[in-house]
Amino acid sequence: MREISYLEAIREALDEEMTRDPSVFILGEDVGVYGGAFRITEGFYEKYGELRVLDTPLSESGFTGAAIGASLVGMRPVVEMQFADFISCAFDQIVNVAAKNHYRWGAATPIVIRAPYGGNIHGGAFHSQSIEGFFFNVPGLKIVAPSTAYDAKGLLIASIRDNDPVIYCEHKYLYRRIKDPVPEEEYTVPIGKARVALEGKDISIITYGAMVHTTLEAAQTLKEDGISCEIIDLRTILPLDKNSIFTTVKKTNKVVIVHEQTKTGGVGAEISALINEQCFEYLDGPVFRVTAPDTPVPYSAPLEETFIPKAEDVISAVEKLMRY
């Protein structure tokens, strides 16, 4: 099977869905003539024209609102936030309009908001944030975060076809750094389903996004020390695949949660609480979290290196938990 990059997978998903369904269109800053800040929509303007690839003003609230309006009359817009950090400007439209439409009057709001997120790219505090936590507490939204090219494509197609608003967290660090086999024929990755990225028996590591690769690296080292890790790649953050989480906890009885997002009130806190409520009697020790510290993402490269969780941090947490 041919291999393509994470970025190419996103591009392919957009291209195929725009070809398949004329109601799908793209809007955002510089997505048209320029081809997107990361060149994901390069050539789309020429291929699909100015009515389906819309360059917008620098107004995230405005173009997200426009997308929501279009979705209410049968379109399937895909909004590109140039950097996920700017999504805060559209917070009201996403949280108070898109997420509530279904509850207020039963209206489907099939929009996808592509959010290039994450650090390790020397972008500093305004171009590196993990934004999933901002929206994790909002009923009515779905949040996905692929870690592989395969999932990047399959989850984006599933998101475009979904009738609810989906925040699609695409990790910038992975864009051109990973490649994996992706089928040429059509497929989707279902929203709400985690995958076992690595089977193991001694300890479970629950993670998503770029941290899947960090934990796989850690698991390789730990294997050499005789510790068998099971890695759960959540793929979807909201709604969480509770069944997969509880299944792995009951299997290994030890859990480490790893995410790049800051610690307090993060996705890991909710997963830990769920495990405590539902699987307490299966636990052999506390649920540990390996996360970024509660600070903005530093611009300084050495500080950023300390900020982003590394394989050594995961190994250290696993070794500590294995002593219980």
Binding site: A37, F38, R39, Q82, F83, I121, H122, G123, H127, K172, Y175, R176, R177
Partner: peptide, 9 residues
């Protein structure tokens, strides 16, 4: 990969 990100920023 890093140059593309720098260019985007």
């Amino acid at each position: 990969a890093q140059m593309e990100i720098d260019r985007a920023i």
